[in-house]
């Protein structure tokens, strides 16, 4: 079965604050979300790829291109990161 691609909630933006990757809520999410997300550089790359509409496989390929990581590990970590973002409501 083909899984649908993750949809990033457009009410969240990624910003670099003092060298730290921070995902912040905007609009009405400001009231409901109650905080922010702190992402390391690899998680931020995944967020940016998803924001650009890339698929899970394309996002994993971007990780492989930038980092010393195997395609299998990259794919598994992209999926785990998407699950984490989904838990927080950043991915629908």
């Amino acid at each position: 079965m083909q899984m649908s691609e993750p949809q990033l909630n457009k009410d969240f933006v990624l910003r670099k604050v003092c060298g730290v990757n921070v995902v912040l809520p905007t609009g009405l999410q400001v009231k409901d979300f109650g905080g922010a997300l702190n992402l390391n550089d690899t998680a931020a790359l995944i967020f940016e790829q998803l924001q650009a509409g890339k698929t899970v496989e394309e996002t994993a390929a971007a990780l492989v291109a930038a980092y010393d990581v195997t395609p299998e590990k990259a794919l598994a970590d992209v999926q785990k990161t998407i699950d984490s973002l989904r838990e927080t409501g950043v991915v629908d």
Binding site: L37, L39, N40, A43, Y67
Partner: peptide, 17 residues
């Protein structure tokens, strides 16, 4: 060949306030 960066597992941490 471009040298790749050292890989760190992605982490997502929620800071509540």
């Amino acid at each position: 060949k471009t040298e790749k960066k050292t890989y760190e597992e992605p982490t997502v941490q929620k800071v509540e306030f």
